[in-house]
Nucleic acid binder design. Structure first.
Lengths: 187, 187
DNA sequence: TGAGGTATGTCAACAACGCTGACATAAACT
DNA sequence: AGTTTATGTCAGCGTTGTTGACATACCTCA
């Protein structure tokens, strides 16, 4: 099958309780765990979005516009990995509904810099609260070392080619130390 | 905001080695990491499915039928968490295309027990191989203790109410010790 | 045996959200 | 001035989720 002969780092589990060989069975369990956890992980915001007639795509746009205020359309496309037409559909709604505002670029007047309006920020908070709550509880229950491992594995799961760029996006914090808006963005 | 006053189980990190404050920033990074990792995680099988005109729903059906050969339609519905009509659409195709076979129940002739045909098992392998490869590499790179933490956090991320049932599904292994088919299925 | 519940399948309609292709406009670059 | 870039939009298609309605076979229990 392909089960055994791979692990480069195969030190056989210091704690004997749960010996960790990379068998197909182990891998399969990881795969399913990821499937079920992700499903529940997205269910909280999904319920809230329903009330607005929005979907997950709206959530993602709102999330990343909040994360990088002033991001350009092209920058957002790059982060989300969807087509212009697909993004435009949800962006159009969010703008029309007054949750997202555009701003013509200063250096390049073709660009549209995106940011959330106060109403947009409201929805962002409502969406992220239950999700943060879920992750917070999971982190608390699992403990600090588990969290570290969780992150490590997820990082390695990302396509190696794009990993650095993605980790750059994840790692950048929006606010310096707690002061205020930072319109950097420069995608 | 809502940052601090929530955690019901906030025991302040018994082991001081790696102080882990659950700031919104920490949580946000976890959330984004999960988003990006899951996106790449699903991309491998997605590419293969395209060649068949199938989508993720087909993959999930194939995966869990392979996992629990003889599962009934109701059992599969329960695992997947979708509607009968939604499942039926992909199941219909898989059956018509000869990847999935039905078998009338012996004890209850209303039931249809599902299993993969040899062709279905072929596709299952083709789909799961790259995904297992990705997880295997990530596990190897991250190391056994990280894997343990990864699993711990994911388990806690699952809805508490359904957690035991879900972990039961994940934990059950298809084959006893390596012998052969086990048409149990029960659920 | 007959009534009622259960397991499955199917038709129809709708919505969210990916995609491709084509085309328009404005602004920048060369 | 001609080309490229950034954005927006129209039109159409496919996958996959949803609800609602209904049919058929089969089991169960009074």
């Amino acid at each position: 099958m392909s089960a055994s002969g791979i692990g480069e780092v195969r030190r056989p589990s210091a704690r004997g309780d749960q010996l960790l060989f990379l068998t197909d069975e182990q891998l399969r369990q990881g795969i399913e765990l990821l499937f079920f956890a992700y499903r529940d992980f997205t269910s909280d915001p999904d319920r809230i979005l329903e009330d607005f007639g929005y979907g997950r795509a709206h959530h993602r746009a709102i999330h990343f516009i909040n994360r990088r205020p002033g991001v350009t359309v092209a920058g957002l496309l790059n982060i989300l990995g969807v087509t212009k037409q697909s993004l435009n559909r949800v962006l159009r709604q969010l703008i029309d509904d007054g949750l997202v505002a555009q701003e013509v670029g200063v250096r390049d007047r073709r660009q549209r810099h995106l940011h959330l309006t106060p109403e947009g920020e409201d929805l962002e908070r409502r969406l992220s609260e239950p999700q943060r709550g879920r992750v917070r509880r999971a982190y608390s229950e699992a403990g600090p070392e588990a969290v570290s491992g969780f992150r490590k594995v997820l990082e390695q799961m990302i396509d190696a080619r794009a990993r650095n760029e993605v980790l750059g996006i994840v790692g950048e914090s929006r606010r310096g130390g707690g002061s205020d808006r930072d319109p950097a963005g420069g995608a």
